[in-house]
């Protein structure tokens, strides 16, 4: 069993590290670059899986036993195509987000935050439903401001909240 050389292992590790770091960012542009870098890392790993570098992949250009394994190359080609297609898709999505929202940041799940805020006072104090409603009204804008959300999501969560008020 032959192993890959150290420099290649380091390159793959760095690509994965950088890719995952960028994936954790808020801006979709950085996430996109992260996915591209991560894709490069994965494809490089696929290439390395095919044996040592600097071997010819084309039949007839080298003796049979020195030819590079063609399968990882085919796999990497397919993977590159797929990553390419999805990268353009993410680009379009980022642009769409920019048109609709004015930035390309991935925002928090508003409903999730709302439930977390709604349930917390109930669990700790066990008070009646009236205070529940008030705390919800107080918390919603606060949470939006705290998480750096723009104005739009809190506005769109408005009708749902008022509908809930009608329900009670």
């Amino acid at each position: 069993m032959n192993t890959i050389n150290m420099s290649m292992a380091v390159v793959v590790a760095v690509l994965y590290g950088v890719g995952f770091y960028l994936l954790l960012q808020r801006s979709l542009m950085r996430v996109l670059i992260g996915i591209v870098v991560l894709g490069h890392g994965a494809n490089l790993l696929l290439q390395l899986a095919g044996g040592p570098p600097a071997r010819a992949p084309i039949l007839g250009s080298a003796p049979d036993e020195q030819i590079a394994d063609p399968l990882p190359q085919a796999l990497a080609l397919t993977a590159i195509v797929i990553t390419f297609a999805l990268t353009t898709y993410l680009l379009a999505l980022g642009y769409r987000s920019w048109v609709l929202v004015g930035h390309d940041e991935v925002q928090d799940d508003i409903e999730d935050r709302r439930i977390a805020h709604r349930r917390a006072p109930e669990a700790s104090m066990g008070e009646e439903a009236g205070s529940d409603d008030m705390s919800e009204d107080e918390d919603d804008p606060g949470s939006a401001a705290a998480s750096g959300d723009p104005v739009e999501p809190s506005v769109t969560s408005g009708p749902a909240g008022s509908g809930r008020g009608v329900g009670r």
Partner: peptide
């Protein structure tokens, strides 16, 4: 505007898992 956020979350998570899958394939093949 409200739906694009959930779409982004979905796309990013799925892409990440796909790249992990690719990594797994590379390791299995190696």
């Amino acid at each position: 505007a409200t739906r694009i956020r959930s779409g982004m979350t979905y796309v990013i998570i799925s892409l990440t898992s796909s790249l992990l899958f690719l990594t797994t394939i590379a390791l299995v093949y190696a």
